[in-house]
Design a binder for these strands. Sequence first.
DNA 1: GCTTGACCTGGAGTGCGCTCCAGCACCTAG
DNA 2: CTAGGTGCTGGAGCGCACTCCAGGTCAAGC
Lengths: 139, 139
Amino acid sequence: MKIGDLARRSDLSVDTIRYYERIGLLPTAMRDGARQRQYDVSILAWIEFLGRLKATGMPIRDMVRYAELRAQGDATAGERRELLARHRARVRAHVDDLLACLTVLDSKIAGYAGAGSEEPSDDADRSHDADDEPIHRGR
Amino acid sequence: MKIGDLARRSDLSVDTIRYYERIGLLPTAMRDGARQRQYDVSILAWIEFLGRLKATGMPIRDMVRYAELRAQGDATAGERRELLARHRARVRAHVDDLLACLTVLDSKIAGYAGAGSEEPSDDADRSHDADDEPIHRGR
DNA sequence: GCTTGACCTGGAGTGCGCTCCAGCACCTAG
DNA sequence: CTAGGTGCTGGAGCGCACTCCAGGTCAAGC
């Protein structure tokens, strides 16, 4: 597989793939006769996993750290497990935080009750919640 | 309240408060005799709400949009409700995504089973999951 | 009266994660 | 033989959300 094919199949751009290789997220690709990168389909699983780490907010340097450990083989399994476990804990905490924010958001939205989609209506006296106050007028 | 006090009480830096005012996230502050910003405690509720929007991943330009609508008064209540409702939907979707990622993460971690905290052990033959393959050796 | 410290402004700088570009090599189809 | 498409490299540029800085004003405490 050439880099363009991989880009199409992985939802990364060609530039991003080369960037990921430069920083060590992707293995240094094998080259064909014309020095063009050649990929095995198996790279897709790794990219997909990286996508999940990214989706869960892991900074790239941590992903790089994980990739380095992976490249060092089985001896680093414990460290990798720990890294993922710590990350999992952070993600869980973040989800809890988001859920708490969601309930705040819900009550806030509920405060705007009755304000139909495109219709400002004349419900001009709603004070809906506790977070809106005085109001800011431009300088 | 002066800007330094507000910074202490809001977990924003003084610079961030001024930045937020510049871009329209915070109302143009009243000044005292020495042209220093003076804040009412009520600003804290607004900042806290902004913090929740930020925590849920709303881009600053959308927060600014919300702040603008708020400043325009009750007539924009419907639009604000819509904005928050769309945001809530995105957050919910993101939470679902995170939960899905969490189960992937969990099974991945389970794959490293037995690899105790600081102890690499000699479990060198674990293939734990489907995402790890060939391995990347530096150039 | 002098120092200290909080505040002011405008603008430059930072770190992250890409994204784009110039200028060149190579392959394939017409 | 030529044109178009894909790939290559090194390096510059970008959008975001701050963060820092120089050079200045002002009020209070010693």
